[in-house]
Design a binder for these strands. Sequence first.
DNA 1: GTATATGCAAAGGGTTTGCACGGTT
DNA 2: AACCGTGCAAACCCTTTGCATATAC
Lengths: 149, 149
Amino acid sequence: MASEDWDRRLHEHGFRITPQRQLVLEAVERLQHGTPETILVEVQRTATGVNLSTVYRTLEVLESVGLVTHAHIGHGAPTYHAVDEELHIHLVCDRCSAVASVPAAVASTFVERLRSEQGFTTDISHMSIHGHCAKCEGKSGEDLTDDEL
Amino acid sequence: MASEDWDRRLHEHGFRITPQRQLVLEAVERLQHGTPETILVEVQRTATGVNLSTVYRTLEVLESVGLVTHAHIGHGAPTYHAVDEELHIHLVCDRCSAVASVPAAVASTFVERLRSEQGFTTDISHMSIHGHCAKCEGKSGEDLTDDEL
DNA sequence: GTATATGCAAAGGGTTTGCACGGTT
DNA sequence: AACCGTGCAAACCCTTTGCATATAC
């Protein structure tokens, strides 16, 4: 999505153009992986008055018009991405909490299989795979140092 | 896991055998897909005094000894499964909220690829794939009737 | 008898909502 | 001018925690 498109995109869907919507979108693009809370902080570097509930409502709007997506990579808040980032999936290590972003291509045959065998259309940007990263494989479950999902 | 194993399993890990732990495990086995809340209700059919916080603590214990697992199939509470159920993954429709359980085998080549290419060991029982089911494919995003993830 | 587990109630994180005001169209 | 969007505060859902009591060992 070209950066000049964002306002047109909102407009076409009957939404108004506001500073908050622009700031939230820019914050998501800058952060690459942002939770509502971190997005708020980023937005507030420019406009201190913006409210958390506005961030939530704005993200919902931006997602509905296809400017951002989100994925759940942990127990807590979802992570938002701008749609013009490279499409990727998240590999989440439940031992050390490391999150690896890998190109969506590694899932393409799987996604195709779900379509042909199950009639299911996968939302790739939403995909988070849990397990253990190479570093943690072999460690016992006792050495958990972090929040599990 | 044979049903006579559950208490041995707890015991081996230094946990005590309590009615609550037995009831919660049995509830999970009966429900097949249960949230903490629905598990509580199921448990309370037998023992009304059991508390929600006990269910949470018990699920944590049962999961740590490998008797149950959980997956996140929606925005809200996680879903728990007994480990002796057939291993499956969840396909979650973000339009109509339908959840399909499909054999883990459909993901086996994908999982193998993550292992060989990324050194990542997937927790298959935890895998939830979001997208659109066959019925909803083609519908616009406007006909949402339910809670999105 | 002693350490662990439970029940209860309060607190906590994340998210949503009602309402009045302010800004975009 | 009309309506949509925002800020604020309260409410909400889900989960965790502190503490006193009860129970498994």
